[in-house]
Design a protein around this nucleic acid. Structure first.
Lengths: 186, 186
DNA sequence: TATGTCATGTAACAAGTTACATGATTAT
DNA sequence: ATAATCATGTAACTTGTTACATGACATA
């Protein structure tokens, strides 16, 4: 149910259309949740049919755009969900599965190294983006409590990117050495 | 396709029954992928119907148990998948969604703190378990390359648990202060 | 024979992915 | 008018979750 509540949260912060939401999921929401436009539209339709959000009766501007806002029911639903407990979800990382598969096969180290370098570059790009946001929006001392909490969430995103970059550095170095050894052997 | 390839990898490392696999997903595989027994059985049936694995013709022992092993087709499929590129997946963390929701609602900080303390304890428990495995299985100098690679993956698991513990410490401290302030105000 | 637990499964649903389809507005 | 792009959507499929069902063996 996280998608639906991520959407309710985003709409509570600012009423938006489906495409707006999709864009926000690609920017300011990206460091804790992501969603494609298909997911967003499907969930918005469901939320509306259940009476948790409504389309603001607005003059349709571009491409018959629909602006959504949260109703009291939606706010209540979100508050109830915030009070629930889930516990941490276990890791599910395709890159690590690939690495373990390459280990089991004793093959494919070169392509693993290429993939890991790509991941490193991607994480670096993402980190830079987050650092820019942190610098622009979260540097001030006059943040209200909601702002401080959003800052904490961004900090998690930054920390995770930093962790992956540092782990990838180590792993690439270690595996490169292995590859050299087995190359020498042949 | 990660589940299927995680299963192929696990079976390649050691032929197993569905329940064995499920248990391995709860232990040695847990630090990079997880799966329930329903997922495992469903995927095993599919893999068998596609001719990537087979049940070893064995005398049924307990509860008519079925032992699976990887066929050449399965090995080829896994090798092809290892060569593919995916790029990192964006974060999807329900805890961070909850936190952002609590910020937007300006409510529910006490239950957030409780949830975060629970996460901290869970991550600590998981970390201890991983450290024990590292100590028991990955301390030696005579690891082969596959062993070293499995060690790297475990290191990622350890690093992530450490990251979350440290982030949760900070966040709990910060939010506790906020709560105090708003309590004083009332 | 009844009780537990080992082992495999079904069913229904929720969530995420991928590919494609369609209408409305804007700029050339 | 036509091309770009803005905006909303359908369809089909894969993956993950939750609750329940069934049979085999072990032992008290």
């Amino acid at each position: 149910m996280s998608l639906r509540h991520a959407i309710l949260t985003a709409l509570l912060e600012r009423p938006s259309s489906g495409l707006d939401l999709t864009r926000r999921f690609d920017r300011s929401i990206r460091f804790f949740w992501s969603a494609t436009h298909q997911q967003v539209y499907r969930e918005l339709a469901k939320l509306e049919s259940e009476g948790l959000v409504r389309t603001v009766p607005q003059p349709p501007s571009r491409g018959s755009r629909k602006e959504y806002e949260v109703l009291d029911n939606g706010r209540d639903d979100l508050l109830a969900w915030v009070g629930q407990s889930e516990g941490p979800k276990p890791i599910r990382d395709p890159l690590l599965v690939r690495l373990r598969a390459a280990a089991a096969l004793a093959q494919g180290r070169e392509s693993m190294l290429a993939e890991m370098r790509l991941h490193r570059a991607e994480h670096q790009r993402q980190l830079d983006e987050y650092l820019e946001i942190a610098d622009r929006d979260f540097k001030k001392d006059d943040l209200d409590e909601a702002g401080q909490m959003r800052g904490l969430i961004l900090k998690a995103g930054i920390g995770l990117e930093e962790f992956w970059i540092s782990w990838l550095e180590d792993a690439i170095a270690d595996i490169s050495v292995m590859s050299d050894v087995s190359t020498e052997r042949s």
